[in-house]
Design a protein around this nucleic acid. Structure first.
Lengths: 146, 146
DNA sequence: TCGAATTAGTTGCATAACTAACAATATGCC
DNA sequence: GGCATATTGTTAGTTATGCAACTAATTCGA
């Protein structure tokens, strides 16, 4: 039985597994406890719209690393929650531009504060240099695969 | 507009986002192209059973960092595929012990080879020391949150 | 020893993911 | 202009996740 068959599998679970899941769940929990009633997936879309309003769905796909059907549904649900509105582009009528509602704009500061606080908890005892190296490794993994 | 509101958000997407998604998708694609008809989530369960057969569902929860309903359903689907069997434990009748079928045992070598090959692709140009540091960072993040 | 608390697993509900197939619009080449 | 091709977004079907509520079996303490 070749035991080294399993060596890299452990790494797989590190990259795809526990830290990201734990962070996502903690963020979700903190949102809920503070009356922010959105999912972290919805947050990740709002996040990019807070940086720049009026992105197209395709641009949201690129920004969030999701495919088109995923963004369609996330925007559907955000529209149901009255947090965004689809506006058909006048230059290219295939495109929907996604705009924040006033409600969603008012959520930015408290929600980003909560998110940053959660990240701070997550990164206790992690030196900044290590964070940077970790980012570089994950970026390299991404580049290797794309 | 406080732009540093977004500083840590970028890191969030690194930890939860693109590398892990890209790796999961590549692994799934490689499985499919080589006639391995299981999902990567199912693979992650088989992975631990290949290391040690006859784990309980709770042990699979701990090993894969999933909750109990997730494991219940993954085992349901693996049973439908005739890759595992639930056997009620004689010592503690609350427990199901999960055993691999012969079909699943025969899948181990080719499937682990494919997975390791994919991990090797993913880790091109990443020094071993950096991998270790990255693992340590993600472990610390996990410990900080659990 | 009996009843409360704990533990293992299941079920229901909502959200989200990927794949594949599709419609509508835009582009580009002849 | 007109048809092939590419791009943007939607729909359908399967799988997976999280949470909450639940059943059944076990353990522990008064």
């Amino acid at each position: 039985m070749p035991n080294n068959q399993f060596k890299r599998g452990e790494l797989y679970s590190f990259i795809t597994g526990k830290a990201s899941t734990a962070l996502a769940r903690r963020l979700q929990k903190n949102f809920k406890q503070n009356g922010v009633d959105i999912t972290i997936e919805q947050w990740s879309v709002l996040y990019h719209l807070w940086k720049q309003d009026g992105l197209s769905q395709q641009e949201l796909c690129n920004a969030t690393f999701r495919d088109k059907p995923s963004i369609t549904r996330l925007v559907d649900n955000l529209e149901k929650l009255k947090l965004v509105k689809r506006v058909s582009s006048k230059e290219d009528r295939r495109m929907n531009l996604i705009f924040l509602t006033e409600t969603a704009k008012r959520m930015q500061d408290p929600t980003m504060d909560l998110a940053n606080q959660t990240l701070n908890e997550a990164l206790v005892n992690v030196p900044q240099a290590d964070i940077e190296l970790c980012k570089a490794v994950l970026q390299q993994v991404y580049d290797n695969l794309k």
